[in-house]
């Protein structure tokens, strides 16, 4: 059976004015980078990467951006959502010094990977890039793991002024980094990918997803790679062959939408 299971929300946390974390009971093992399909009955079902992993509970952290996330944002402890998953491949975390680069809400899904790396006592550097200070979340949470955390803001309202990818380039020059992990706007990830020709690289891709079971083809990239089953995490070598990476994605009808 692969159907949503109605689950009560255990708790919610407001991270910023439009970013929320929802925690629910889910004892299944989850690999950082994997995702759930979250059903909001009567509205939609959307993919959401896991943002917190404990033995008995899991969490998702998301921005109120569309119809489905807006409805989800209104829910509180005691409300019910449908859960199925986890789906996808997840990150492969290995190396002596790792760099994590999260753009926008990207830090949410990198957080469990960072926590995992720190539990293994791996030296970890984190760059969180946001447009402005008000959009920043998980900074303290990441610092508490013992990682070195940098913040960039586009407008300079906090941390370093500029893009996360620019700071990443500086870090890559100064430090010996074994692997880079990223999630965020695709053009940012594309820029990072170019910086990581000789460094292990893993990026989490986002595509319009329907079945999440590897059947409908809606989320396919490159030569038939399914983001829902073969991804959402792709390594640098694979991304090299995905010609649509950083160029376009597809809408619900399968029409190409160019990134700009």
């Amino acid at each position: 059976m692969n159907i949503p299971i109605i689950t009560p929300i255990q708790s919610t946390t407001l991270e910023t004015k439009d970013v929320k974390t929802i925690t629910f009971a889910h004892p299944a093992p989850v690999i950082p980078g994997q995702f759930y399909m979250i059903w909001i009955p009567g509205v939609d079902e959307i993919p959401m990467s896991v943002s917190r992993i404990t033995l008995k509970t899991k969490a998702i952290t998301f921005r109120d951006v569309g119809d489905a996330t807006h409805q989800l944002f209104q829910l509180n402890a005691g409300s019910h959502i449908g859960i199925r998953g986890p789906y996808g491949n997840g990150f492969t975390i290995a190396g002596k010094h790792l760099l994590f680069v999260g753009g926008g809400t990207g830090i949410a899904m990198l957080a469990p990977a960072i926590e995992h790396a720190r539990k293994q006592k791996v030296k970890t550097t984190v760059i969180i890039g946001v447009k402005t200070h008000q959009e920043l979340f998980f900074e303290q949470h990441m610092k508490r793991t013992g990682a070195t955390v940098y913040v960039t803001t586009d407008d300079g309202s906090y941390g370093e002024k500029g893009f996360a990818s620019d700071l990443a380039a500086t870090v890559l020059k100064k430090e010996h980094i074994d692997a880079v992990y990223t999630c965020g706007p695709e053009l940012m990830m594309k820029t990072l990918h170019k910086l990581c020709k000789h460094i292990r690289f893993q990026a989490s891709l986002e595509r319009y997803m329907k079945c999440a079971m590897g059947l409908c083809g809606q989320c396919c990239v490159g030569d038939g790679l399914r983001v829902c089953v073969d991804g959402p995490i792709f390594d640098g070598t694979t991304l090299q062959k995905i010609t649509d990476f950083g160029k376009y994605h597809r809408d619900a009808a399968g029409r190409k939408i160019m990134y700009k």
Binding site: V43, E45, K210, M213, L215, A252, A253
Partner: peptide, 10 residues
């Protein structure tokens, strides 16, 4: 565009 999700169940 097709229908909203859920669209496929096992």
């Amino acid at each position: 565009e097709g229908y909203p999700n859920p669209t496929v169940l096992e």
